[in-house]
Design a protein around this nucleic acid. Structure first.
Lengths: 352, 352
DNA sequence: ATGAAAGCGCTAACAC
DNA sequence: GTGTTAGCGCTTTCAT
């Protein structure tokens, strides 16, 4: 085996036991703090373990206990700063609880491609999730779930794998979730746009099968309706990926179509940045010719000359609360699903 | 045990063997594709495994083989888009090779705080690295190493844990590395600034103990010297964290000091964004009053009105190559350390 | 207070 | 071609 040759053998609990002249059970007791050894022996064993540079094998421990003492955080796109800010919060909170967070970048397929065409995305996500489970992950933090991921969530529930959804959620699944009131947030954006005199507002949302995106779209449309208006662009143009590229491409189309437009309300910040790219490309002045709004307030939404009007959400807190909710489940709480709505706030800046 | 109660028992290889009426060895052979079973039996076993929803325990596999078939990617700050773009490349490349990438956000201490004061940072990094090792990670991808992390690198070498350094590197350690020619890149920035008529150039670099930051600082200074100039700010003002906050704070100080300055050359993009924030705050026009340059070309360095002059580096490729280099080592290659210098390119944009 | 021993679920000799 | 078996390094009864 390549292994045994290339890798120096680890110091094991048995090595420690041998040197200390005790059984491995005593070593286990001593090191884990369990009762069963005298303080004196405990100290002696600790010293020897230390001396030998012993570190317990988390793999053996995991196999024995069935738990890895780690939680998995699945990121659809690690390149999206909004989610990495959530991740930072999650890691900090888990650290406080003595757990590790192992992050996976799911990649391709999820936020890309058509709305339903990509079962590949669902499959990939499920594969990554199962890999964490097969490593005996104590629980899963899921971001960016789409309707098509419902079977995965159901599987997790059936197999009693603790999981909480962050930000996005699959409707109808009895699962814990932390996020914001997307419908309200979107409404506030529209009202702000209305207040500043905009009337020809195009809507560039996320994926139709994303609950959050759908809620935002509805929030945009409803607020517009309340003012006797409707989006300046047709329904099918309103859905797409929540990426900068998609924002750019859809804005180009929108501008090329020549429909009169004085604002673009985007489903998230990334889309809005793409729209800003398109404005620059096509020579539209923001906000004079056209206003642009985002939603999320990721940190790069406001940098120097770039000052996107958006809705800020407590990113770190989402991560922290998610971890705490997950912990309840890991510890055995089997109460009804908790859905926690965190506060958001409109951030008017320079693009409106 | 909370475990066994709350979690349905997994289907094991033994379950499959029992149902198939064969030994677990045959199941193992059948499923791993090893010889030792007839095609017929193999198929039957596969079908049953499938039927039962059997998935091998990666933990048991790991304990047995000593390898987890996963690689660990340590990110100092998952919130820094430059590194997440590298991460995306690494994940893609590892996927091609049938490995998983488990990402850790090291957090606090690393890129924050003083230069040496924070041994806490080194300790935290080492802890995270060891956690991966104790999970039998096949190898480690390390980013953002500082001089103080040399002991960790030495430990990895001693214990034969394959590791490659991405972008930053600890000098003097015989370890694989992929990155760019920092000194040259910094020089090109200065020459560009000089060409556009700037003469009072302040330098806002990264940490003194970061090899890359030091090389860049030297590149800045050397290019300035070649033109008979020197940085407009004193040496001690040139070092700091590679964060937006640090850029903002140091720029404020710089501007407050009142030294005549017509350009700020930053050690990376994040610092430059902070400087841009300060310019906006203090009413400095960019580039008319002052030019600002970055280094890295992370994707958010150019968005709509934000068009930072910087040096672009092949981010995804760094991740990909890193994984490939790591693989050589995992497969047993024990040749001399490889240092791969990837191309970079000046990207003049609107801040100069 | 301490030790012996039985697994956790898998792989890899080694028998047959 | 197929089965038996001995661990991998731990935790945890159960004896002593």
């Amino acid at each position: 085996m390549v292994d045994r040759r290339s890798r120096a053998r680890r110091t094991t609990m048995n090595d420690v036991a041998r040197v200390a002249g005790v059984s491995s059970a005593s070593v286990s007791y001593a090191l884990t703090g369990a009762p069963g050894v005298s303080d004196e022996l405990r100290e002696r064993i600790r010293a020897i373990a230390n001396e030998l540079g012993y570190r317990p094998s988390l793999v053996a421990q995991g196999l024995k206990t069935g738990r890895a003492r780690s939680i998995g955080l699945l990121l659809t796109d690690i390149t999206n700063p909004f989610y990495t800010e959530i991740a930072a919060g999650a890691v900090a909170a888990a650290g406080d609880l003595g757990y590790e967070v192992l992050i996976s970048h799911v990649g391709l397929g999820q936020d890309a491609g058509g709305d339903d065409a990509d079962d590949a995305g669902a499959a990939r996500l499920a594969t990554v999730a199962r890999a964490h489970i097969d490593r005996y992950s104590s629980g899963l933090l899921l971001t960016s779930l789409l309707a098509r991921d419902q079977p995965l969530l159901a599987e997790l529930r059936r197999t009693h794998v603790p999981a909480v959804q962050l930000y996005r959620r699959v409707p109808g699944e009895p699962s814990d979730w932390v996020g914001i009131d997307d419908h309200a947030a979107a409404g506030e954006i529209i009202n702000h746009l209305l207040t500043t005199g905009r009337r020809h507002i195009a809507v560039l949302g996320g994926q139709r099968s994303s609950y959050a995106s759908a809620a935002r779209e509805a929030g945009f449309v409803d607020a517009l309706s309340a003012a006797g208006l409707q989006p300046a662009n047709p329904d099918q143009g309103r859905w797409g990926d929540i990426s900068r590229r998609s924002g750019l491409e859809r804005a180009r189309e929108l501008f090329a179509r020549g429909t009169p437009i004085d604002a673009v309300a985007c489903g998230n910040d990334l889309i809005a940045l793409g729209v800003l790219d398109a404005c620059r490309e096509d020579g539209f002045a923001v906000p004079d010719d056209v206003a642009v709004t985002g939603l999320d307030d990721m940190s790069f939404a406001s940098v120097g000359p770039l000052q996107l009007t958006t809705v800020t959400v407590p990113r770190e807190l989402i991560g922290r609360r998610g971890v705490q909710m997950l912990f309840r489940r890991i510890e055995g709480d089997s109460g009804p699903p908790v859905e926690e709505v965190l506060p958001h706030q409109l951030r008017p800046r320079d693009t409106t």
